[in-house]
Design a protein around this nucleic acid. Structure first.
Lengths: 233, 233
DNA sequence: ACGGAAAATGCTGCATACAGAATACAAAAG
DNA sequence: CTTTTGTATTCTGTATGCAGCATTTTCCGT
């Protein structure tokens, strides 16, 4: 076998058009990945079920080829499991898996908190304060779904403030895996209130750039998250 | 319907898939993923180069379809980047990316160290001691490649001792991304000796189940790793 | 000669087609 | 009635073909 180094394609600098991007050309791949992810997270594809390619492709209006590629992508993300000659099945998480993931997630968020306190811009912090305020409004209105979405966004935004791209990427992956679990965990009013209070403290610590306090409350927040979902598994 | 959880087929020692190998028992997908990974890590596909599907498929003896699926998998792993209408290019890491990844890797290893000290079995620790001793032998023999492999294996094994599967998985992903970088970083004799000494201290701390010391030396080890490779980027 | 537009080439993205494996079902033997 | 075996169907795994986009080359006008 001859493996020769492939000829170097030249610079290939991507246009990197950040903002002016109309949703003009979105590759089908991304669309499929997102739709499949949503179907798994929202429970339309429950854990353990096999992903029938023909059926699923017809349902989504695409052929099997791009669908299979999307499934392989999700497999690497850890949402589905590839079984030889038998296709893909939605991965199921046991209680220990969830606990382990929350532990890692908490550690990553603590790291992100330290970095964010050190280097975040004032605008970035203000943005998170804005997200938080909107989240509180949804909480007062009793809108669980919107609350939930903003909650996730806040955690993601804090990690993004760390300026560490790989950290943000891994955090997003773990959060995605846990979304399905959290989707189930419907905590009672008192625990919900406690979660909101923790968030308030988080924002205050961030605004004060208090690394220790932010890391501590994040750790507590994740521990409590485990308490909230442990019954639902 | 029973779902049996398949065990890891990720072996440490890959049989270095021979060319005429009609090993049709393993799924082609895994084979392709591994071979592409190796080609990227070992530099046969340098960062920035486009992955030409036709050419690569012919080179590897497969058609484009399974190759594309493998590429999508690697994209989710972060080794290649998908550019719409232009295929996949080998991701290039800047100095900051490497530094960021090492920071996350260090944090994860510190977490793993704490867990491992708490729950590892004596056999598990003894096994790592064995790996370490073999590594030292290769060091004394001046065999860089074998030393390097055992070095990676030791870190992987420590993380595995934590008993936290998601942690191990993410750690492996990051380590894979960094393999290409470390493959380049040929440190001089004195730094090499320092690295070995750090490893010796790691093992001692693990055998003593000293969480603080193990976490500390792991952090120092990763910081030094950054010093060793920063020139090569 | 020089600049620019239009044709040409190569590659990706997607759909379809085909072969082999796994499962389900049915019939026959104990 | 249970078990086993042979067959049929469904689904996965892989190959191939075609259309569209990106880039390069060519050719014409100035």
């Amino acid at each position: 076998m001859q493996i020769k180094t492939m000829d170097e394609s030249r610079s290939l600098e991507r246009p990197e058009s950040a903002l002016p991007g109309p949703i003009r050309r979105t590759a089908l791949h991304d669309t499929l990945v997102n739709r499949l992810r949503d179907m798994i997270i929202e429970g339309h594809l429950s854990p353990g079920t096999r992903l029938n390619e023909g059926q699923l492709g017809q349902m989504l209006g695409v052929s099997r080829t791009p669908l299979r590629e999307a499934i392989k992508y999700l497999a690497s993300e850890g949402l589905v499991e590839l079984v030889p000659s038998r296709g893909a099945v939605v991965k199921r998480f046991g209680a220990k898996d969830v606990q382990d993931m929350l532990l890692v997630l908490g550690t990553l968020e603590e790291l992100a908190a330290k970095l964010a306190c050190a280097i975040a811009s004032e605008e970035g912090i203000a943005e998170i304060r804005g997200l938080h305020d909107r989240m509180v409004q949804h909480y007062k209105a009793g809108d669980r779904l919107e609350y939930y979405k903003l909650n996730q966004n806040i955690h993601t935004a804090i990690v993004a403030l760390s300026g560490n791209a790989p950290l943000a990427e891994i955090h997003a992956m773990l959060q995605t895996r846990l979304k399905r679990i959290r989707f189930i965990g419907h905590e009672g009013p008192e625990k919900w209130a406690a979660a909101v209070a923790e968030h308030e403290e988080m924002i205050e610590a961030l605004e004060a750039r208090d690394q220790q306090r932010l890391a501590a409350v994040l750790g507590r927040h994740l521990t409590n998250a485990w308490e909230r979902v442990r019954g639902a598994i």
